[in-house]
């Protein structure tokens, strides 16, 4: 009995040690320690100030406890964020303006619409660039230039212009997402469509295949791994685009709006929970693309690029 327990315990340690879990666990643990220490360090100045003005006796233990439970800390402790997340994710109705799920939903809608538009635009541009020499030379500089303009500068203008023609809400946000995320898709897709080697192209030539046949039977399938590699980058960028687009609009909904409101009122805990929500969303989105990639490429036994 005990012997059995012993071996299974040993087995657990072995598994932890050999698997990925152990290193991940160590990294998380170190980060948490650093974070808690950081919270004390960052928040202590204001606390000590308060103690001295109130002429209160304070101990280190008191300081640490207070540093981890301030209402508007400079750096909140992890458990404060967890509490806030539980309150705004689980305990509010998801249709409530206070629910983080609701705000995430608003942001993710424009992310996905922007991503779909960006993918479409990116792929169409790539197809044009690969097939028409003139497009390659005339479009490419503009595409690259478009990405050097800081999005924070151009986002308010897009919103004002679109607002003027009656487009508000999801559409302008989606367009800003699209503006940011088509670029990696174009670049990846151009590379993918050009990836067939001379021999693979010569083969098509010996069959006297039409340009359309070369595209559908060679260039398109050859580009799929490249497409997915850039989609993974693009969907994360698309989320950033949607959040950034919520900042200058004075939006009241969405994770961007939560970030903005939080910073107006010094609600650092609210900001951090919105950040956590955004990164969880980001991971879920990239994961969804990865799963799709596995399903699509898995059938052919090909590896991702």
């Amino acid at each position: 009995m005990t012997e059995h327990a012993e071996t299974s315990k040993l087995g657990l340690w072995r598994r932890l040690y050999d698997g990925k879990s152990f290193p991940v666990f160590v990294v998380v643990l170190s980060l948490l320690i650093l974070w808690y220490a950081g919270a004390v360090y960052m928040n202590s100045d204001r606390l000590i100030d308060q103690y001295e003005r109130g002429k209160v006796e304070w101990s280190w233990q008191q300081l640490i406890e207070d540093a981890w439970s301030m209402e508007r800390p400079i750096l909140p402790a992890p458990q404060q964020i967890v509490v806030e997340l539980r309150k705004t994710v689980l305990e509010k109705k998801i249709t409530s303006k206070r629910s983080l799920v609701y705000h995430s939903y608003v942001t993710i809608s424009s992310t996905l619409v922007g991503f779909a538009l960006g993918a479409l635009l990116g792929i169409l541009l790539a197809v044009g660039i690969v097939h028409l020499e003139t497009l390659d030379r005339s479009l490419m500089p503009w595409i690259i230039a478009s990405q050097t303009v800081p999005i924070l500068a151009i986002a308010p203008m897009i919103i004002v212009v679109l607002g003027h023609i009656g487009l508000t809400g999801l559409v302008p946000k989606a367009i800003i997402s699209m503006y940011l995320c088509f670029f990696p898709i174009t670049i990846g897709m151009v590379k993918g469509l050009r990836s067939p080697d001379v021999l693979q192209l010569d083969l098509m030539k010996t069959y006297s295949a039409s340009a359309a046949q070369v595209f559908w039977k060679l260039r398109m399938p050859a580009s799929i791994p490249f497409l997915f590699a850039s989609l993974k980058v693009a969907i994360a960028i698309s989320l950033v685009g949607a959040i950034v687009a919520e900042l200058p609009t004075g939006a009241v909904e969405g994770l961007g709006a939560r970030l903005l409101a939080g910073s107006y009122y010094g609600q650092t805990i609210q900001i951090w929970s919105a950040l956590v929500a955004a990164s969880v969303l980001g991971m879920l989105l990239v994961w969804a693309v990865t799963i799709t990639e596995k399903l699509v490429l898995g059938r052919t036994g090909r590896e991702a690029v």
Partner: peptide, 14 residues
Amino acid sequence: YGYVFQAPALYPWR
């Protein structure tokens, strides 16, 4: 004509 290249030139996704 039919051409057999010096290398197989198969399409890996097929």
